[in-house]
């Protein structure tokens, strides 16, 4: 091992150490807990016995848990889909040249500076049925007759409900800026001459988007989707702060369910099992992403 290698290892060591201590070790520990019967109230007296997959079997047999899993997926798909679509559009808008562009850029990027917790608090106030300024505006304008119960209306169409859509909207609002930045960077790396060639070949706005922009953005979009889905599955703050998973479990997501199971009901074993499910879901995304990458590299 020569000097240069030693130096490299020493430089990498702190970051590696932090990752192992704060990331890998808790993950492994949690996975171990998920295979044990770990009830906080009886830990001292009964201990933690190994129960294999029992925890998993129990939570997967629970209707509420399954509903939560489904909702986690729906939330993430909706939030990611809508914000990427809007991001594609808005990125093109800020990429174009026009007066007042910097003002518009600041406005579009401002939600980025609001941490999710603060965003939740702000929107919780903005969407509270009785005091919501949105409700007042809509009522005054005559667009609605009764106040919209953004976070408490429990009517559903299939798996969708108004509280779910409200939280999806807040997630989009909060996450849009970073998506736009990513896409903007991607857009600016597309050579202008490709658009001109497409123009000469007879392409209009839609053709240029479909045949030049989208294919050239593919690598950026893939990374973006992978990151957003992985992050989205584990999203906690907004659902917990704004609705706590209600009403009637309609906005429950895996992270909230896990939190409540572990810290309210003190059943660590089951909470860890839920964590295991999240791990499986994220692994599927990662595998898919890696497969798509290798396909690209091969071709």
């Amino acid at each position: 091992m020569n000097e240069k290698n030693v130096f490299c290892y020493v430089m990498v060591a702190p970051a590696l150490l932090i990752t192992i201590v704060l990331g890998v070790y808790p993950m492994v520990d949690t996975m171990l807990i998920s295979f044990q019967s770990y009830d906080l109230l009886t830990v001292q007296s009964k201990g933690t016995e190994w129960v294999g997959f029992d925890n998993y079997r129990e939570i997967l047999a629970n209707d509420k848990f399954l509903q939560t899993v489904l909702q986690t997926v729906i939330f993430t798909v909706l939030a990611v889909g809508i914000s990427v679509l809007m991001g594609l559009f808005l990125a093109q808008v800020i990429n174009a040249d026009f007066r007042g562009r910097s003002v518009l850029r600041t406005v579009i990027l401002s939600p980025w500076f609001v941490p999710p917790v603060v965003a939740s608090a702000i929107w919780l106030w903005l969407l509270e049925t009785n005091t919501s300024p949105i409700n007042s505006m809509l009522l005054d304008a005559g667009i609605i007759e009764r106040k919209i119960r953004f976070l408490t209306d429990s009517d559903t169409i299939g798996p969708f409900s108004i509280p779910m859509l409200s939280i999806v909207a807040v997630r989009c609002w909060n996450g849009l800026p970073i998506i736009i930045i990513f896409l903007l960077a991607g857009l600016q790396s597309i050579p202008k001459s490709l658009y001109e060639a497409a123009e000469m070949d007879g392409g209009g706005v839609w053709a240029k988007f479909r045949y030049v922009t989208l294919p050239m953005l593919r690598p950026v979009l893939m990374v973006l989707f992978a990151l957003l889905f992985l992050g989205g599955f584990g999203h906690f703050e907004m659902n917990y702060i704004m609705t706590g998973g209600g009403p009637r479990n309609l906005t429950n997501v895996l992270a909230v369910w896990t939190y409540q199971e572990g810290f309210q009901f003190l059943r660590y074993g089951k909470a860890a099992a839920a964590g295991g499910i999240v791990l499986v879901m994220c692994s599927i995304i990662s595998v898919f992403y890696l497969w798509a990458q290798s396909k690209d590299n091969r071709s």
Binding site: P191, S193, L194, E196, A197, A198, Y211, V212, P215, M216
Partner: peptide, 8 residues
């Protein structure tokens, strides 16, 4: 085009 601008 000078850079050919072929769709990669």
């Amino acid at each position: 085009f000078q850079s050919y601008a072929l769709y990669p």
